[in-house]
Computed example of a mutant assay.
Amino acid sequence: MDFYTILGLTGGLAWTLAYIEAIRLGFAQKTFAIPFWALALNFSWELVQSAYSIRHNSFSLQSYINIIWLLFDVLILVTYFLYGKKGFKNYANPAYFIPYSLIVLLISMLIEYAFIKEFGGTDGAVYSAFLQNVFMSVLFILMLIERRSNSGQSLFLAISKGIGTAASTVLFGALGHADLANLVFILGSICFFLDVVYINMLVKAKTSEVSIKTGN
């Protein structure tokens, strides 16, 4: 097994663990554990990439990982549609919850499709994945601020996401195709920084919560 395969498996496994934790948190705490715009983009990316692999009969290790992630994202979407409306009503009429959600999913699909049409299957997948990863890292920070608690969030999920993205950054940014390396490395580094910030914020939020419960 070469270093490229090890990095690919590390990234795939770490993100898989993050998805599993998101599903567990969602059903256990009756919430959704991935910010919806990030979830919609992830779901769309995996759906478009899986469809691309099937259409062109070009399967790799990443192709099979994408299909597994797609199935997990379906379950995370279930938690969103089951429990997301209670938070949505703080900002808009609950009657708009389903139309809004479907529009976001449609926009996400169009974005992922545009990346493939513009840059091709491989480059488009890498560009969009790292851009939306930065977006996701920002949204996790905003979700922690908005919820004012660690509800639907865990260090295990945050660290797994960080490791998954870091492994992919080394794979595609340091060792990958020269045409992709600079942008991927910069985006991956930004993502890693934001993930560290989020993990630090989450630790402080958990510490504060424990202090409040114990009266310290």
Results as ranks from 00 to 15, higher is better:
V78A: 05
K85F: 11
K206Q: 15
A129P: 05
Q132G: 06
N200A: 14
Y80R: 01
I34P: 10
E112Q: 11
S211L: 13
T169A: 01
G176F: 06
I98Q: 12
M1K: 05
V48E: 11
L39R: 11
R148H: 02
A167M: 05
D2L: 06
N182H: 08
Y96A: 15
L171T: 07
E112D: 13
Y19C: 13
L142S: 03
A33G: 00
A92F: 14
Y96Q: 14
Q62F: 13
G188R: 00
M143K: 10
N42I: 01
A178W: 03
I163K: 00
I145T: 08
T169N: 03
I190A: 03
Y91C: 06
Y4E: 14
S208K: 15
K30F: 02
A166L: 14
L155Q: 01
S63V: 12
V138E: 08
F97R: 05
S208D: 14
L110N: 11
L144W: 10
G87A: 02
D2E: 11
S63I: 14
M201C: 00
R147Q: 01
G162Q: 06
G173N: 09
W45A: 15
W69Q: 08
I68A: 15
I68K: 11
F59E: 07
D2A: 10
Y64W: 09
A125G: 00
S108P: 09
N200Y: 14
V197C: 10
G124A: 01
K89I: 06
L77V: 03
T214N: 15
I107G: 12
E146I: 09
Q29T: 00
T79L: 10
M136Q: 13
A33S: 03
Q153L: 11
Y19A: 12
A22Y: 00
N133T: 15
Q153C: 07
S101R: 04
G84Q: 09
I65H: 03
K117A: 13
T5W: 00
L180M: 02
K89T: 10
G173W: 04
L41K: 05
L131E: 04
Y19P: 14
Y83P: 02
Y100G: 01
V184G: 03
I111W: 09
P35F: 15
L110F: 14
W69R: 06
R148T: 02
V196W: 07
V104Y: 04
F192L: 14
Y64N: 03
I68P: 01
S160K: 09
R55F: 15
T5A: 12
L194A: 05
L75V: 02
S137A: 14
L7W: 01
S168V: 11
W37R: 13
L155G: 04
N216D: 14
E21L: 06
Y64F: 08
W45Y: 15
F193T: 07
L82H: 04
R147D: 06
S154K: 02
D73T: 03
A14F: 06
S101K: 06
L82W: 01
L157E: 03
L142K: 13
L144H: 00
R24K: 07
L102R: 05
Y96K: 08
I103Q: 02
I199S: 04
F97D: 00
A22I: 02
Y19I: 07
R55I: 09
L105N: 10
I107D: 08
L102P: 04
Q29F: 02
T122P: 11
E146R: 15
L25W: 01
I20W: 00
A22L: 08
I68F: 15
